[in-house]
């Protein structure tokens, strides 16, 4: 393979380079145009109004609004009794959000050229109390039922070529003692009653019990996942079951909704939604047939809320927790819900 003669090289270089530059420019300009389009609302999408609300008012569903328009990615509220009604969006943008008993946690992008992310602790009037830098892309957020503890999980990308390795980092913050447990990887882990150590311990998807000490999470290691029960005061994590991801404890503390990896029949169906009864260890598959990659949320004692991919990113769906009934779309263009109960 010999290069072309010297006199042809420069014209070829200039011509092809000009083509490539033009192509690159068109790609960026078109993407920028599309980004602008998302700032304008579309016909047929839910109505979003600017407004203020707080976390004290019961009977609301709060979520990240994904409907196009200037209020995209802002937190929005709808009445629990009429989730399809016009939404009221507060001036606060979050990628992931959760709230309970007057405490909110918002994981957001800080903007700037190199995107950084932060976790913002919110009081009941949605004011920022404290900000924590987080080392990756937000994926899960939870507040304990009493509002005392908050937890978040981010993805940390490795530095290997072509992005082979990913890991997660999960932190828990105690708002009363102001203690930050920076990473669950510092806790001691027990699997089958023995201390378990591995270089690839990853934790994600915390859910809290009512006592503000016990919590559940996922441990991933050596290609397996475990449901672990954590004790915050002893800083321990005990594996209680295999193949459980993104646990979500029911309001009465007796059941855990989770996503279970089922043998992939098609390449597209890795997870199904299940409920585990902690009293007898029985697992019930739920009526949702689609693959769910979300940490489900208990809307009430009998119903689960979760996100599925949708036209504008994601929609919120609900399904009965007893394995019967049918899934139903509740809120279009929304993700990361929180139920403000009575």
């Amino acid at each position: 393979m010999t290069p072309p003669p010297a006199r042809h090289r420069l014209p070829v270089l200039l011509a092809v380079t000009a083509l490539l530059l033009a192509g690159a420019l068109v790609a960026v300009v078109r993407a920028a145009g599309r980004a602008d389009e998302r700032d304008h609302s579309r016909p047929g999408q839910p109505t979003v109004n600017k407004g203020e609300w707080d976390l004290n008012h019961p009977g609301r569903l709060i979520f990240r609004n994904l409907a196009w328009g200037p209020l995209r990615d802002h937190l929005a509220a709808v009445p629990l009794t009429a989730p399809g009604a016009a939404r009221t969006a507060a001036p606060r943008d979050c990628l992931r959000f959760h709230a309970a008993a007057g405490t909110g946690i918002c994981l957001r992008s800080k903007g700037g050229v190199v995107p950084g992310h932060e976790a913002v602790l919110l009081d009941s009037r949605m004011r920022a109390l404290r900000r924590f830098p987080v080392p990756g892309i937000p994926t899960r957020a939870r507040v304990s039922p009493s509002g005392r503890l908050v937890a978040w999980t981010v993805f940390v990308s490795g530095d290997s070529y072509a992005g082979g390795a990913f890991s997660t980092r999960t932190a828990i913050y105690d708002t009363r003692t102001r203690t930050l447990h920076d990473s669950l990887e510092d806790f001691s882990v027990l699997v089958d009653g023995r201390r378990h150590r591995a270089v690839d311990h990853n934790f994600w998807g915390v859910t809290f019990a009512a006592d503000d000490t016990t919590f559940y999470a996922t441990l991933g290691t050596q290609g397996r996942t475990y449901l672990v029960r954590g004790n915050l005061s002893r800083r321990t994590l005990t594996a209680v079951r295999e193949n459980v991801e993104c646990p979500s404890l029911s309001p009465d503390g007796t059941r855990i909704a989770f996503k279970k990896r089922v043998r992939p029949k098609g390449a597209d169906a890795p997870w199904r939604l299940y409920v585990l009864d902690l009293r007898n260890g029985r697992e019930t598959p739920l009526a949702e047939r689609a693959s769910v990659d979300d940490q489900a949320l208990w809307r009430d004692r009998n119903t689960l809320l979760y996100a599925l991919p949708g036209d504008y990113g994601a929609d919120l769906w609900q399904v009965p927790a007893n394995g019967e009934g049918h899934p139903r779309k509740v809120v279009a263009s929304a993700v990361s819900p929180a139920v403000i109960g009575r």
Binding site: G23, A24, A27, V28, R30, A31, A32, R34, A35, R38, G112, V113, V114, P115
Partner: peptide, 17 residues
């Protein structure tokens, strides 16, 4: 990150460039 800054969520533009 420059491209993503110019075009929010423009991942396809990053891959094209």
């Amino acid at each position: 990150f420059g491209i993503l800054w110019a075009a929010h969520d423009g991942y396809d533009a990053v891959f094209d460039v």
